[in-house]
């Protein structure tokens, strides 16, 4: 087990530095979260990798890949993992609090004043417009991520089948996720194991 009190418990490449303290960690994550309108990931990359040098690009990609796979919001998982890497569980809490606390206060005050503001048709209209953009951002992100399936060892046909099946089950048939994810997930995992094994035999 690593000790949570040491500043750099994990071997850090010479070109990176560790955060100075828990409050440094907290403040950095607060600053990056407050810049993240419509997505924190790009800001996180710039602050943590380009500006603070806490990780290399490769380490960032690796951490994000894992964060993406686990349940929970990706950037929240990412902040947990990085906090944990530098300061153990106390670092995880500091990074998590930095990522969530200030934005939570802002969004709740917006929600609280929205009920009064909603009486103005322009405000309701603005929110409706932003809602349409939010729908578009989601669809666009999904479209972009489809491209990452190109290198998937299962091949395009199986991927389309699994993705299309989950879309139909959730969006069209409105089946609860706690049925869809285990069922489709286990099927996907088994298929992936078969495909990976076959590809390795072919090599």
């Amino acid at each position: 087990m690593r000790t949570p009190t040491d500043a750099t418990p994990i071997a850090t490449p010479p070109d990176t530095v560790a955060p100075r303290s828990l409050s440094d960690l907290f403040l950095t994550f607060t600053i990056l979260a407050l810049q993240g309108f419509g997505g924190v990931l790009a800001v996180a990359q710039r602050e943590l990798v380009d500006r603070r040098n806490w990780l290399t690009r490769e380490q960032f990609v690796e951490a994000y890949s894992l964060a993406q796979l686990l349940p929970g919001p990706n950037v929240v998982n990412l902040s947990l993992m990085l906090g944990d890497k530098f300061f153990g569980w106390r670092g995880a809490i500091a990074a998590l609090a930095g990522m969530l606390l200030a934005p939570l206060l802002i969004v709740l005050s917006l929600a609280a004043s929205y009920n009064q503001l909603a009486e103005y048709p322009a405000v309701a209209g603005a929110l409706r417009g932003m809602g349409a953009v939010a729908a578009g951002l989601m669809v666009a992100m999904a479209c972009k991520l489809v491209m990452t399936l190109r290198t998937n060892p299962m091949g395009p046909l199986l991927c389309a089948l699994i993705g299309g099946l989950s879309l139909v089950l959730v969006a069209v048939l409105r089946l609860p996720l706690h049925w869809v994810i285990p069922a489709v997930g286990v099927a996907g995992w088994c298929l992936a194991r078969l495909c990976i094994a076959r590809a390795e035999r072919a090599e």
Binding site: S65, Q68, L69, G131, A132, A134, A135, G136, M138, V139, M141, A142, L145, V146, T148, L149, N152, P153, M154, L158, C159, A160, L161, I162, G163, G164, L165, S166, L167, V170, A171, L177, I181, V184, G185, A187, G188, W189, C190, L191, A192, R193, C195, I196
Partner: peptide
């Protein structure tokens, strides 16, 4: 296999979320 097999499922779910928002 977990990484490989869950990717298309995740993307299907993101499209579903876009549909619900629309």
């Amino acid at each position: 296999a977990f990484i490989t097999g869950l990717a298309p499922l995740t993307i299907g779910l993101l499209f579903s979320a876009g549909w619900v928002l629309a």
